[in-house]
């Protein structure tokens, strides 16, 4: 997993609530047995007509936003399915950070496993960043995970919260399974006891 420290990226607005995982990556692209290559299909049904031509109005088809790395969206982003194809598709397109007032639980966890930082902020702060994003013209935000700040184009910084453990894993690019396996002795002991139970 790529380490996540500080980066500056173009910000795109997706001013909708309840953006679900079927929107982020429709099911026809779930037939892959790979993690890579889904960026071409992210937001497919909003981005392309059935004949494959681009829908010009959609934000990621506009010249200002084709290189976006940060997405600002409405409440309850990522609701629906557990498909990790959703963060894979966002990452493969180039997104490293999604900012919204709230996220669905499974999607939120899936992001961290793939080097994407999901940031939940109060609506008033999201509104400011949404306004920045709507300016287009290559407007960038700076995300500093170590300092836990977002720097707006006008220089204002917005602080955000993140679970310290998850933050550390992102910064170090740590492998979750490797971390857990360091606790193998505890798992062994727990499992040996649990396997004795009639109902397990």
């Amino acid at each position: 997993m790529e380490k996540f420290t500080t980066f500056e990226g173009i910000v795109a607005p997706l001013d909708m609530i309840n953006v679900d995982t079927d929107m982020i990556v429709p099911k026809q692209f779930l037939k892959t047995i790979k993690r890579s290559g889904l960026g071409a299909n992210v937001f497919d049904e909003m981005r392309f007509r059935p004949d494959g031509s681009e829908i010009e109005d959609f934000v990621l088809n506009q010249p200002d936003y084709r290189q976006s790395q940060i997405l600002v969206a409405g409440d309850n982003f990522g609701c629906g399915s557990s498909r990790e194809h959703a963060p894979w598709a966002l990452l493969d397109f180039g997104f490293r950070c999604v900012i919204a007032p709230s996220f669905a639980d499974i999607f939120f966890n899936n992001c961290f496993k793939n080097g994407i930082l999901p940031i939940a902020l109060p609506q008033t702060e999201v509104d400011k960043l949404m306004a920045d994003a709507k300016q287009g013209n290559g407007t960038v935000l700076t995300i500093n995970l170590e300092a836990q700040t977002i720097t707006r184009p006008n220089g204002e910084t917005i602080a955000f919260d993140v679970d310290p453990f998850k933050r550390n894993c992102l910064i170090e690019g740590l492998d979750d399974i490797g971390l857990t396996l360091k606790k193998s002795e505890k798992i062994d002991a727990f499992e040996a006891e649990r396997n004795q139970l009639a109902w397990c």
Partner: peptide
């Protein structure tokens, strides 16, 4: 509850 694919791998490898 539902989990993502990274967690599927985690459960397969560690049962946790």
């Amino acid at each position: 509850h539902g989990i993502g694919t990274s967690e599927v791998e985690h459960v397969l490898a560690t049962q946790t």
